[in-house]
Design a binder for these strands. Sequence first.
RNA 1: GCUCCCGUAGUGUAGUCCGGCCAAUCAUCUUGGCCUCUCGAGCCAAAGACACGGGUUCAAAUCCCGUCGGGAGCACCA
Length: 481
Amino acid sequence: MPEFFEEDEEEEEEEALPELEAENVVMRMAPYPSGPLHIGNARMILLNDEYVKKHDGKLILFFDDTIGSEKKKLLPEAYDMIEEGLEWLDVEWHETYYKSDRMETYYEYAEKIIEKGESYICECSAEELRDNREKGLECSHRKKSVEDNLEGWKDMLEGGFEEGEAVLRLKTDMEYPDPAFRDRVLFRISERTHPLVGDRYRVWPLLEFSWAIDDHLLGMTHILRGKDLVIEDRMEEYIWDIFGWDSPEFLHYGMLRLKDVDLSKSEFQRKLAEGDIKSWDDPRTWSLQSLRRRGIRPEALREFILDFGLSGTDIEVPASKLYANNREIIDQEANRYFFVPDPVKIELVGEIDIEKAKISRHPSQKERGYRELRTGNNVFIPRKEWDDHQGEEIRLKNFCNIELEGKKGEITSFENKDILKIQWLCEGFDVEVERPDATKEKGMGEKNLKDTEKGDMIQFERYGFVKVERKEPFYAVYGHR
RNA sequence: GCUCCCGUAGUGUAGUCCGGCCAAUCAUCUUGGCCUCUCGAGCCAAAGACACGGGUUCAAAUCCCGUCGGGAGCACCA
């Protein structure tokens, strides 16, 4: 072999991410605690983490727990679940903040922005407001004096208005070309109880205002957000301008969708409440917790996500891409076992001259040794294979070749033939596998499964990689093929 | 409808800012072959793309204009 081919071997791992200009990078991740982090949030998290690590900067975990809406409810357990997910992902963050903890600060700046004449108390109904926004009309409240607005603000805080009766709005321009940007709401009244601060506050900021304040106060240098939130850029800049503050740099990424997967935390929250889903690590949620249960490795997820880079393009990827990344890691370590889903018992006809079948634990790592399976005339095979291959000659892997006729199998020979090979068992115990759609598949597992440990990633041959979750009774969670 | 963003192989992605080294990178997928007693892994090979139309230039995936297509926002959600 000519040596010059060797040179290409050590190519350096190019980071797909564009460089940042700044030196002392400070960034933040701002999950909304309505549920645990799921695969969709991973992009925001990992991109932040990657940038900060690369620049040796500071990463802030900022719980974006303003009161939310009726549809998007805060969930008390979510705080811990989010941190648990971050730790699993090996994200390093340096400080933790809670929006709900900083209300006095927001109030302080709200007053300042009113005093500057840049915002006003609006008593329009939500419908009127929307209508005016669409038509570009100013309402009468917009013309009130600073004094009136300060008075109104005090009223809001002290309960002079009911929920929905008044909001604080930013005075941009009702004829602004982008209708979405016309006099957006900064604060509104909500009587809902907050999981951390209870009923202490009734006037809550919307994210644009709270971020404009916090991003400046905490010295953020770069703000990374999905492009669904780009309007917040302009909102923040507008507010920073009012206060005369400098602007950090914005970075955006496009929308990420997993093909055939629907992700909505509020949706899952509903299903959970209705008992449709039992827990947040249900595989259907695609929460980080559920991925961990399925044996997805954080490194695989990181690689999967970072491969998309920072592109502003919307992407839709099949989950199989993630599985390919994960398989690369786990295939090396997963020992092989037989699992016969939905077993059918057949009787072998003919002489059997081997007492035990020897099968390697890992076909490409023979040093791991072999496992043994007792042979006999009564064997169980998967119903699917039994159905599909009637009248055909198939091979019971590492055992014998048979011709399937009804519930009988005529032994034809023992040598390794180049025909379909399937898994089989003469004895075993009950095994249950939880599928990604949360259904359970029952079957028979080989006795050697007793050698596995809880948490092991193993492969059921011809079936898929599963993670051992319980030993007795044996329960595994399906990862992927 | 209005505003903004984005268009490189089936799917993602590199290259686009600073035009030539791009007859375009890598991964995955697909198809062959080898290997392996798994529908797993590995190895080899093949197939596959600059949305379209103009313009600038000796030279355009890269710059300009237009068209078309996709997405996001227009919540008292985040």
